[in-house]
Amino acid sequence: MVQESQAAAAPAPAARRRRLRRPGQTLAPLLFISVAVVLFAVFFVGPGSLGLYYSFTEYTGVGDPEFIGLANYEKLFGDDQFYASIARTVLYTALAVPFGYCVALGIALLLTSAATRFRSAARVIFFVPWLISPIVTGVIWRWMFGENFGLINYVLTVVNLPRQQWETNGNLALTVVILAGAWAGTAFAMLLFIAALRNIPKSYLEAAEIDGASGPQRFFRITLPLLRPTSFMVILLGTLGAMKEFAMVQALNGGGPGTQNMFIVQYIYQTGFQRAQIGYASAVSMVLMVILIVIALIQMRFDRREDLA
């Protein structure tokens, strides 16, 4: 019995030695994490904390901030322009995200199909818009859809069709913004879908084809359910990006005509930088941040429930 207990206790020091880590093995992960922590603190926590402080002040960018408590928030929730910009932003998000999702998934399906030729060249062509600055994207589409000098209206006149009011009609202007956003943002989602489609086992699709499943049935019963994690990521990032859209819209139509297509970030920009109401704009920014956090949590909770089901 004594020998057995000694034999059992013998590996303990060796196991303890194996559990001991060298200083470099602990220092390297901390070093890499520290870079992300510093960047997060400098570019998010710091500005966020400053914006939260300004939201309780009447700060104009000049002089010392004057603390006014919740006055900015009380003014905010009675501001009709704030509600209008939120409503237009939500409408844009509700239209742009599904449209961009369908376009990206459709292009990914084409580029992963064996029947498609010149797939490598097509990937490069579809990826180029994502490399262009949002401001440049807005300028390009403004030239294309200008009422007096735009390419689209010129083509319409050539084929004897009436010119469209792309800039003075609020709904048409919003349509142009949706098209421009999909054109610029499709590439990233397309790459995610291409990677996900390649990871789907071909045996699943081949077995379904042998069982007599048609192409649409294979897509909706096999391909689309297996793309759920990627779809969740695309929809989440697309929603957050659409809610924060600014540069492309500012260059395209400036939120026009008038303020009909003013999104929430444009409202923050005009309030803070053009009217010099930094405190009030900071309050709007805090409300927007809460809205984005709530949207992300709801989508994550919904995706988690589907996984449990």
Rank of each mutant, 00 (worst) to 15 (best):
M1A: 13
M1W: 09
A7M: 06
A7V: 08
R16S: 13
R17Y: 08
P23F: 14
Q25S: 14
L27F: 13
P29A: 06
L30E: 01
I33W: 01
S34Q: 04
L39R: 00
A41L: 12
A41G: 10
V42F: 14
G46F: 12
G46A: 10
G48D: 01
L50T: 01
T57G: 00
E58R: 14
G61P: 00
G63Y: 02
F67G: 07
G69H: 11
G69Q: 09
Y73Q: 07
K75M: 03
K75W: 04
A84H: 00
I86G: 01
Y92Q: 11
Y92P: 06
A94L: 15
G100S: 02
Y101E: 08
C102G: 12
I107T: 09
A108Y: 06
L110I: 03
R119T: 14
A122T: 11
A122G: 10
F127R: 08
P129R: 11
W130S: 15
L131M: 15
V136L: 15
V136P: 01
T137L: 08
I140P: 00
I140M: 05
F145M: 03
G146K: 00
F149L: 12
F149S: 13
G150A: 05
V158F: 03
P162N: 12
T168A: 07
T168S: 08
T168L: 05
L174G: 03
T175M: 15
T175R: 02
V177T: 10
L179N: 04
A184G: 04
A184H: 13
F188H: 00
A189Y: 03
L192A: 10
L192H: 00
F193E: 01
N199D: 15
E206W: 04
A207L: 06
E209C: 09
Q217K: 15
F220A: 09
P225R: 14
L227V: 15
T230M: 14
S231L: 09
V234L: 11
L236C: 09
G238A: 13
G238P: 09
L240C: 11
L240I: 15
M243I: 10
F246V: 11
V249H: 04
A251M: 06
G258Y: 00
F263A: 03
Q266R: 09
Y269P: 00
Q270P: 02
A276M: 08
Q277Y: 10
I278N: 11
S282C: 04
M289H: 05
M289K: 06
I293D: 08
Q299D: 06
R304S: 07
